[in-house]
C-alpha cells in the first residue's frame, strides 16, 4: 500500500501547512464561501417574486447549483497541483519531482491541496444540497446516493481535465492560465442555470466543447425528471462517468506527451 501511505503522508503535510495559518485560512475559506454564496443570494432575490421560471422552481435551480459547488470542492481537493501547475513549472519545483522515484502526476496531485477553496465550496454545497433535496422531497435510495457520488466524482474529473489540458501548455512554456480561467469560469457561470434557458449554440458549447452540462445539468435530471429533458438524448443523464473517463484518459495521454517534450526541450526559462 505504498501509494496510499505516501498519499496520506503528503496529506498530513499539506494539512499541517494550512493549519499553520489557521486564522488566515479560515478567513479565506469564509470569504470564498461568501463570494460563492453571492450567486445563490442573487438568484433568490431575483426569483422571490416568481414561483417558477420556465418550469423550474427555485429549489431545483439551487439543487443544480449544489453539483457545481460539491464537484469543484472535490476537484480542488485532489487537483490543486494541476490548477496551480504553471507556478510549479516556473518556480522550478517541477524539476524536483522528476528526480524522485514516484510517479510525476502522483506528486503533482499529492503535493498541493487548497483546503480553503475545498472547504468554502464544500460547505456551501452541502448546505445547498441538504436544503434543496429536502424541499424537493428527493428520496435518497441507495442507488440514488451512489449515483450522486458517482456524478460528483465524474464532475470533478471533467473539471480536472479542463485544467489539465491547460496545464499541458506549460510544457511548451506557453502561458494559458488566463485563457483557461476565462473559459472555465465563464462556462461555470453559464452552467449555474438550466441549459434550456440558453440559445442552442450555447447549449451545444456546454455539451461538446467545455462539457459542463455533464457536471450538473444532465446528472440533476436523474433526480428532477424535468420534461424538458426530452429535447436531449436521454442517455446524456448517465453519460457523466463516460465523459469523465474518456476525457481524462485522453488528457493524460496529451499530458504525458507534453512531459516527454518537456524533458527533451527543458525549461527554456533557465
Amino acid at each position: 500500500m505504498y501509494p496510499l501511505r505516501l498519499f496520506l503522508k503528503y496529506f498530513q503535510l499539506t494539512l499541517k501547512v494550512t493549519l499553520q495559518y489557521k486564522f488566515d485560512r479560515v478567513l479565506i475559506a469564509a470569504a470564498v464561501m461568501i463570494r460563492e454564496m453571492a450567486g445563490v443570494i442573487i438568484l433568490i432575490l431575483m426569483l422571490n417574486r416568481f414561483v417558477m421560471i420556465k418550469g423550474w422552481q427555485i429549489d431545483e435551480i439551487l439543487f443544480l447549483y449544489s453539483f457545481l459547488f460539491l464537484s469543484y470542492s472535490l476537484f480542488v481537493f485532489f487537483f490543486t497541483g494541476i490548477r496551480d501547475f504553471e507556478d510549479l513549472v516556473y518556480s522550478g519545483e517541477f524539476d524536483r519531482f522528476l528526480v524522485r522515484p514516484v510517479g510525476i502526476l502522483f506528486q503533482v496531485i499529492a503535493s498541493k491541496v487548497d483546503y480553503t477553496a475545498a472547504l468554502g465550496h464544500g460547505v456551501l454545497g452541502i448546505i445547498l444540497l441538504q436544503k434543496t433535496a429536502s424541499q424537493l422531497g428527493i428520496e435518497w435510495t441507495a442507488s440514488g446516493i451512489l449515483f450522486y457520488i458517482l456524478m460528483l466524482l465524474g464532475g470533478a474529473l471533467i473539471q480536472a481535465s479542463i485544467f489539465m489540458i491547460a496545464s499541458t501548455f506549460c510544457f511548451w512554456t506557453v502561458r494559458t492560465t488566463n485563457l483557461r480561467n476565462m473559459l472555465f469560469f465563464n462556462s461555470r457561470k453559464i452552467a449555474a442555470y438550466p441549459l434550456s434557458f440558453y440559445p442552442g449554440l450555447i447549449q451545444k458549447f456546454l455539451i461538446y466543447v467545455i462539457p459542463f452540462g455533464f457536471v450538473n445539468y444532465f446528472p440533476a435530471q436523474y433526480f428532477l425528471k424535468k420534461p424538458e429533458m426530452n429535447e436531449f438524448w436521454s442517455g446524456f443523464m448517465f453519460l457523466n462517468p463516460v465523459v469523465a473517463a474518456v476525457l481524462f484518459a485522453l488528457v493524460c495521454l496529451v499530458w504525458n506527451y507534453g512531459l516527454k517534450h518537456y524533458s527533451s526541450t527543458g525549461n527554456a526559462l533557465y
Binding site: 416568481f50 421560471i53 420556465k54 423550474w56 476565462m182 457561470k189 453559464i190 442555470y193 434557458f197
Partner: peptide
C-alpha cells in the same frame, strides 16, 4: 467575462418574462 455575465443574467430575465 463582461459579455458572458450579461448573457447569463439576460437569459434568466428572459426565462422569467417568457414565463
Amino acid at each position: 467575462n463582461t459579455i458572458v455575465t450579461i448573457l447569463v443574467n439576460l437569459a434568466i430575465w428572459r426565462a422569467i418574462y417568457e414565463e
